[in-house]
């Protein structure tokens, strides 16, 4: 094995990692923004309002991400109407096709995570909002969403890590993300073990950063849980 190729191609791998980061950050942020209204519609008391996000989530959770990417990338260009629309400059770019597919996918998962968190708030705390005469909007904006934020953090961090790993699929539509870049380098150097090990290490590093970041936010956000509930009393 010859790890000098790793050093030689390291700048290329880093530029691939940067593309991966852009893919993940953009789709997670956009997905998070879309997820909130989807989650709120999902818990609506009105049946037909609930049905729309249900179908959306059912589709995006039930089909492979790779199929979704292909549908956007190969599917959209099949329609003349799409090619003639103002969206074509965006839809012809593999990068943006990946962003669209990732965003739709992660927003479906994230909506389910948000919904779970909102519904995990004890009923009594919701009633405490009602008896003060809060409107629905006040209730969600002032109390329930901030409360759900603390509950959502662990599973949301998990979803971001899943998205990070899922982003490797972008390499199938010619994007030179970390995985795509690794494959390109290997095609030239025939050193799959060295380069994939290096790429894997970079993925691991990014995951660690996400985990660390979420741990910090969690500690801050959930400080109300207090330390005394976890720490044992000092008997001395």
């Amino acid at each position: 094995m010859d790890f000098s190729v790793v050093i030689e191609y390291f700048p290329r791998l880093l530029s691939g990692a940067w593309v991966t980061l852009q893919l993940v950050l953009l789709s997670v942020v956009l997905g998070g923004i879309f997820a909130l209204p989807i989650a709120l519609a999902r818990i609506s008391p009105v049946a037909w309002v609930r049905a729309i996000p249900f179908g959306y989530i059912f589709f995006f959770r039930g089909t492979p991400l790779l199929v979704q990417i292909f549908l956007v990338y190969y599917g959209a260009s099949q329609f003349e109407a799409v090619k003639n629309s103002i969206f074509w400059p965006i839809l012809k770019e593999p990068f943006w096709c990946a962003i669209i597919a990732f965003t739709l996918n992660t927003s479906a998962y994230t909506a389910e995570i948000f919904r779970g968190a909102i519904q995990a708030i004890p009923k009594g705390e919701v009633e405490a909002c009602k008896v003060l005469g809060m409107t629905k909007v006040q209730m969600y904006r002032r109390i329930l969403l901030p409360r759900a934020f603390g509950i959502v953090l662990p599973s949301y961090g998990n979803e971001i890590i899943l998205m990070l790993k899922g982003s490797a699929l972008a390499s199938t539509i010619t994007i030179l993300d970390l995985t795509g870049m690794a494959r390109t380098i290997i095609a030239r150097t025939y050193t799959p073990i060295e380069i994939f090990l290096a790429a894997g290490a970079i993925y691991l590093l990014i995951s660690m950063l996400v985990i660390f970041l979420f741990r910090q936010i969690e500690l801050r956000q959930n400080r109300y849980l207090g330390t005394q509930s976890i720490q044992l009393e000092d008997k001395s």
């Binding site: 004890p122 009594g124 705390e125 009633e127 405490a128 008896v131 005469g133 109390i143 901030p146 409360r147 603390g150 956000q221 959930n222 109300y224 849980l225």
Partner: peptide
């Protein structure tokens, strides 16, 4: 205008 005090307090813990 009507206050309500619960058996289980229901303070917002956060």
């Amino acid at each position: 205008k009507i206050g309500f005090v619960f058996q289980s307090f229901n303070l917002w813990p956060h």
